[in-house]
């Protein structure tokens, strides 16, 4: 790796969308570095390119130009197969609307990335149960998503994002569908995971209160980074 401690590095990153005759610049030259083990919030008005940046960093979308490095992999030029294994083995995604598979029990949802990686069912079950324990749902392993509250579903989704032991977790408005109290619980959980497991978390939000749980806040506007804030926290505040 050797690229100091930064996990993510983008240079002159652009993403344009063609809408008929119009060209939409979702990303208009983004230079960003994120260190390993940090919780970064991506804020900005709607349409400022937050989701696009997240998707490019997660290997779901490709930049139109510029480079995006995650650890030692440049995603813009990587072949499709590489992107698939990158998403499967190194990234965890958390979505605004949870996106759990309705027919699967909670533990099966958590174990999906492991299933795709070809692990045995017994190994999957064991790992999924310990992850559900970590997110406080140890007793809900056999429940289906419809039998869980929104907050519980999002915690199952968080456990799923952790299943493959990722270096990077990408969350697009993870509290967007939750009331403020459950949202706070989820944010505290995410914060704790970053601390305890040394994963890197990039979270898109338009809610400044949610962003305040992060270590750094990246402000975007019109496809560009406007400002980066670092939140200084006292030892008590963290606890």
């Amino acid at each position: 790796m050797g690229q100091s401690t930064s996990l993510i590095r983008t240079t002159k990153l652009q993403r344009t969308y063609q809408m008929g005759k119009n060209t939409v610049q979702a990303l208009a030259g983004v230079d960003l570095e994120i260190e390993r083990g940090t919780f970064v919030a991506l804020v900005g008005p709607s349409g400022s390119g937050k989701s696009t940046l997240l998707n490019v960093i997660g290997g779901l979308d490709r930049p139109s130009s510029g480079e995006v490095w995650v650890s030692d992999l440049e995603l813009g030029q990587a072949p499709d197969k590489k992107l698939v294994s990158f998403r499967r083995d190194r990234v965890g995604f958390i979505f605004q609307s949870f996106n759990l598979l309705p027919t699967n029990q909670a533990w099966e949802n958590v174990a999906l990335p492991l299933m795709l990686a070809g692990r045995s069912r017994s190994e999957r079950r064991q790992r999924a149960e310990s992850l559900l324990e970590q997110v406080g749902l140890g007793d809900r392993a056999d429940h289906r998503p419809a039998e869980l509250s929104g907050g519980q579903q999002q915690r199952v989704a968080i456990a799923r994002a952790l299943a493959n032991d990722p270096v990077l977790i990408l969350a697009d408005e993870p509290t967007g569908n939750l009331d403020s109290r459950t949202g706070r619980d989820v944010l505290l959980l995410l914060q704790r995971l970053v601390r305890e497991q040394n994963v890197t978390l990039l979270m898109v939000t338009h809610d400044m209160n949610a962003a305040s749980y992060a270590d750094r806040i990246v402000h975007m506007r019109d496809g560009k980074i406007e400002q980066i804030e670092t939140i200084e926290r006292t030892a008590e505040a963290v606890a």
Binding site: G58, L60, D80, K81, V84, S85, R87, R88, D89, G92, F93, F95, N99, L101, L112, P113, L116, A117, R160, N164
Partner: peptide, 14 residues
């Protein structure tokens, strides 16, 4: 469709 998107995001190949 969303399910397929989810599966692809978390690492399902074509």
């Amino acid at each position: 469709t969303r399910e397929i998107g989810t599966l692809k995001a978390i690492g399902a190949s074509r």
